[in-house]
Write a protein that binds this DNA or RNA. Structure first.
Lengths: 348, 348
DNA sequence: TATTTTAGTGCAATCGATTACACCTAAACT
DNA sequence: AGTTTAGGTGTAATCGATTGCACTAAAATA
């Protein structure tokens, strides 16, 4: 064995006194090679512990069989679950997944896109950062003939496919559910309304109210960051209102949790006096003593579907820009924080 | 611009009527190139939107500037945090991180190692799967001259560096803490004792007991899987004992949670009647109404340090096999589930 | 003025695998 | 027998960047 353990087709070709071309063909099961030679080559390859160099292959073919995934932070459950989905779907097809974080900074996002392109990835999956307001870097990806796929946080760019959940429907579902529990004055802890996803959740909330004959009161809408503290602060503000709400649809599980903790301090009983629903189905929501109702965004499925869309596009021979917009249905997860049905049974 | 947006140094060299070698040298700031030429090249490169092809570079240099990270599942907070740490440390050095999952299957692990080697990664970071009992695939990595680094779940192989936490100390700390709260009959919810990490946690527990004059009762040790259900089941079994424990050190936060839920059903007050400590500092532990004491494994730090060890080794010119064993100190996080000090204050 | 430096470039091989094209041999055909 | 055909291999170019060696012209030195 050579130093470094680097065995190439040339080493095999020398050993067998055939050309490297023959070895390559044999290894790739080219029908033009006689079965006798093929067997010799395979045997030698095994014996010499030959390993195909995917780098050389990629350079020649123009396909690296690598894809990039860009997310704000890897260790958020939602994103890591999506990444898991992508990996599980793409792995069996021989792709490797390269991950990058933006830390919510557009500058970093642009840089990540550039280095991924340098690395010759075959495609890029991404959820845009909160601060992204330019699209040049996305167009660059397209210009290089690479597949670009947005998931969850997207921008509308011609030629770019996306996989998102129906945030409007999610907001609608959650709000409707609160209404069904008898709540009449439903507040909303909103996220940054400049982001499409939060805007849609908000709009779903408003529409559900209207469709059920309830008024959408602007005083009932609180802008929050996705954190427990922010939720607690919003809850305090909310409780300063003369006409106090009797429920809240929170665009984040963290703010929902903050609200629960804060409202408890005021002696509010949940769900008896107040119902609450979060968003994202973070793992902690189901483990609480008072499990929190929430919206499941099915991130694993989202990742798998994004990967499937990629596979369809990358294999397509047509040069046309195909774009596919997948909108997944969110799943309402009803738990104790908003479920009064269990309550009635207990009371009866 | 050429079709595909693929601009090479040859395109630049043609445009400027110089050789590709000159272009390459200019771009790499080789001092042999006159500043005039260099400027021309840079200007042309910018104008033509030239992008370096890292694949070609990697093939030539033998360094891909990619590393692989293999974990059981990406979307476990502990692992995704480690990955985040690795990415954040390595990114600024120009490395990309490729992620792979084993689903705890050795066969998959072996395959992942092989494909990563084919891809010519410069190094591999991994936490071995629960079912791994062979080491051939690790030796293969070493034979190819690649850096291998274990984190958290390791095997002792010469030439392989590792970054782990001191699980013995963690078990000791947690147990000692329970003792300090006045607990005398401390049980242990153990993991699979064939895995080094769980064995060490167990041993730390036993030693803490002994050092404090308490007897380690085999009846007090329950083997569990890392799940809420398993914790609940263990708690039930535990409560069938004649001599009931007054505390448990659980090797997993999930089993700790299961135990808390189950013990509540028996009317046990925590921490008044029973103290409990988990392990891992899963996000949910701090959000509970009764926040759970636990051990923080500082995964982000673990990832960063693993990356630093990699950087040291990969840059080292010496061909010697260097190995570095880093053992991080765990951090005991005391919360309400085992903190009686707050209690006394309240009582006073 | 003759000769040695030095700066700046080009040539061509190289990394490892793939593949169009050319070529040769033996079998199959008219 | 002469010629086509198919099967099986080799040659050499290619993907894009890097780099040892050779070379030229101008500058520095004797």
């Amino acid at each position: 064995m050579k130093e470094n353990g680097k065995v190439t087709i040339y080493d095999i070709s020398k050993k067998l006194n055939v050309s490297a071309a023959t070895v390559s063909r044999a290894l790739n099961n080219n029908p033009k090679i006689s079965s006798k030679t093929r067997e010799l080559v395979f045997a030698a390859a095994k014996e010499m512990n030959y390993k195909q160099n995917r780098l050389a292959q990629a350079l020649k073919s123009g396909k690296s069989k690598n894809v990039g995934v860009i997310v704000p932070y890897i260790n958020r459950n939602f994103f890591s679950s999506i990444i898991r989905g992508i990996e599980e779907e793409l792995g069996p097809h021989g792709y490797h997944v390269i991950i990058c974080q933006t830390h919510e900074q557009m500058a970093t996002e642009v840089e990540q896109v550039n280095t991924l392109l340098n690395t010759q990835v075959d495609g890029i999956f991404m959820s845009i950062s909160k601060t992204t307001n330019k699209t040049d870097h996305f167009r660059k990806v397209l210009n290089e003939g690479k597949t670009l796929i947005f998931f969850d946080r997207k921008l509308d760019i011609p030629g770019v496919s996306s996989v998102v959940i129906d945030d409007f429907k999610a907001g609608y579902l959650a709000t409707e559910h609160l209404i069904s529990q008898g709540c009449k004055r439903i507040a909303h802890f909103a996220g940054d309304l400049n982001l499409e996803i939060y805007k849609n959740r908000h709009d779903g909330y408003v529409n559900a109210l209207k469709d059920n004959g309830l008024k959408a009161d602007p005083d009932y809408i609180f802008t929050t960051l996705s954190s427990v503290e922010s939720g607690a602060a919003a809850a305090r503000k909310m409780w300063e209102l003369k006409k106090k709400p009797d429920a809240v649809f929170s665009a984040s599980d963290y703010t929902a949790l903050g609200a629960i903790q804060e409202l408890r301090k005021f002696g509010i009983r949940i769900p008896e006096d107040f119902c609450i629903s979060g968003f994202s189905n973070e793992p902690f929501t189901k483990y609480m003593e008072l499990p929190i109702s929430t919206i499941d965004q099915t991130p694993l499925r989202m990742g798998k579907i994004a990967a499937q869309v990629f596979l369809e596009q990358v294999d397509s021979t047509q040069k046309l820009t195909i774009e596919k917009k997948v909108v997944l249905s969110p799943e309402l997860v009803v738990r104790n924080s908003s479920d009064r049905s269990l309550l009635k049974v207990a009371v009866q």
